[in-house]
Design a protein around this nucleic acid. Structure first.
Lengths: 112, 112
DNA sequence: ATTCTATCCATAGATAATCTATATATGTGT
DNA sequence: ACACATATATAGATTATCTATGGATAGAAT
């Protein structure tokens, strides 16, 4: 039985950046948001999430601040930076290009 | 400058299997076909292609036979097996599910 | 009180997929 | 002779993800 992957490799950073366009969120919240919006199809494991957030911090695409949640827990909230917003644009257009290209191969495009 | 990937990780096997539904092909031909159908967006490097073909052979999703090309070269032609056809179906539906789910996150789906 | 579940962070190690680079060989065109 | 397209293949590096932990706190349930 071929195991179903939790997400499409290469898309996690884009999903996180997109999620942060709505509002700053902590890691756990990001994971929950992606899971819920995707109707439980996409699951972001901690072992993928936190390394990804480290990557994004290092690139300067997000910044992090420790704050309190509404429920009185400390959590690190991530905010999209201007560079991050720009990066999201790049990733979105590359992704769309890829998907379109894959679609052409899958639909067995005959040359015009 | 973020380097643009040649393909979306996790999609290569599917693309190869799909390509073989048209006709048996050798490795080089598969790579060319994908490149052309995708309008040069998807490039399959040798270092990705041949390991992928080994995987597919090992799984029994394709079989390989040495033959002569029209131009008189020996080349290994790959043919889709019944199991391969079934696998392609699985991968196609998983892929579509993933893309749909990613689309929901990217389009910022509000709950109904 | 204690236990369970949910919330929250983070890392180590394994696994898998892809890319870079290289090696080999033949046929065609110039 | 030389370049280019055709054709296969592997070694090694890189990167991304997953599995499996480990910790800590809050709230609800028993």
């Amino acid at each position: 039985m071929a195991k179903k992957p939790d997400l499409l490799p290469g898309t996690l950073d884009m999903l996180i950046l997109k999620t942060l366009t709505r509002a700053p969120l902590h890691g756990y919240g990001i994971a929950l948001s992606i899971k819920r919006l995707s109707d439980d199809v996409l699951t972001v494991e901690e072992g993928s999430l936190y390394p990804a957030l480290q990557r994004l911090l290092l690139q300067g695409w997000v910044k992090g601040e420790w704050k309190m949640t509404e429920t009185g827990r400390r959590a690190r909230f991530y905010t999209l930076t201007a560079a991050g917003r720009k990066q999201l644009g790049i990733e979105l257009s590359q992704f769309e290009q890829m998907i379109t290209a894959i679609g052409r191969v899958l639909r067995d495009a005959q040359e015009a």
